[in-house]
Design a protein around this nucleic acid. Structure first.
Lengths: 138, 138
DNA sequence: CTAGATATTTGACACTGTCAAGCATTAATC
DNA sequence: GATTAATGCTTGACAGTGTCAAATATCTAG
């Protein structure tokens, strides 16, 4: 990174992080999920079968952490552990149909019940923000 | 919110949230703070003396939560509880000089050691992102 | 084939966050 | 002005989250 944003940016960034996370957690609990379970479910794309390790590398957390989270999602039937075709050590996390359904509900609720989430931004600016965040995490 | 971003935006948003939070936590631990202590310290502007309640409303968390976090920061001498001039129930959280110093170090480390935080964004785009996030949390 | 590396899991333990209850202080009602 | 209600903060109990060290199973390199 060449450019260093101002201190004010970091105040705002932290506020944005905490507010957004809290909002997602609140919606998650209404759907019978814990906060991290919802965040993990939301991070899974339909096709994309990632291994436990890939997931924990992406979030820079301990592998044992992922075990517990996936356990919870698997018990609810939202994801399943699939064997890797060429490496029996690896377990691929597969998003089940039920998981996709819950995921869609979560997204709808997060978007729908968050009049304040993008508070102060015009539609065009929301699109800009969405584009930038997607560019960082393609 | 009139505009509803695509599902892909939410995958990216969640990834951004988790990565950024993890990155801040990592830097925090290097400075002897817990993750939430660092986030709270980072959210305090120099002048701005907010009450416990204001802080917990901003993050939509329980008041008792803030008590513990401020306890930790106060023990380290980074913030202090000041009496409100007109209401003796209220305690205002004051950022001490030492707290401001640590805050600046945190920001420098977060910015400096995060070549990946804004990965894929050009300088102009980082400025755009910073402006949008600041606009949401003025 | 053996030694080392990798993927995941388990159990122990600290940190985080919520809830219910309690104390002190202020505001509202009579 | 006295009583009741509301607000701000703290405490203690308890679920959730995250890390570490150790263990197992499997793969890779020499």
């Amino acid at each position: 990174m060449n450019k260093t944003p101002s201190d004010d940016f970091y105040y705002a960034l932290v506020a944005f992080l905490m507010q957004t996370k809290q909002h997602i957690v609140t919606v998650a609990v209404e759907h019978g999920l814990t906060g991290v379970q919802a965040l993990t479910l939301l991070s899974l794309k339909s096709r994309d079968e990632r291994s436990m390790t890939e997931l924990c590398k992406q979030y820079d957390c301990d592998a044992s952490n992922v075990t517990g989270i996936v356990d919870g999602l698997e018990q609810k039937g939202l994801v399943s552990r699939q064997p890797h075709p060429h490496d029996r050590r690896i377990k691929l996390i597969h998003l089940e149909e039920a998981g996709r359904t819950v995921q869609k509900k979560l997204i709808a609720d997060i978007a729908g019940t968050s009049p304040d989430m993008f508070n102060g931004l015009a539609d065009a600016e929301i699109e800009q923000l969405a584009a930038l965040i997607q560019k960082m995490n393609p």
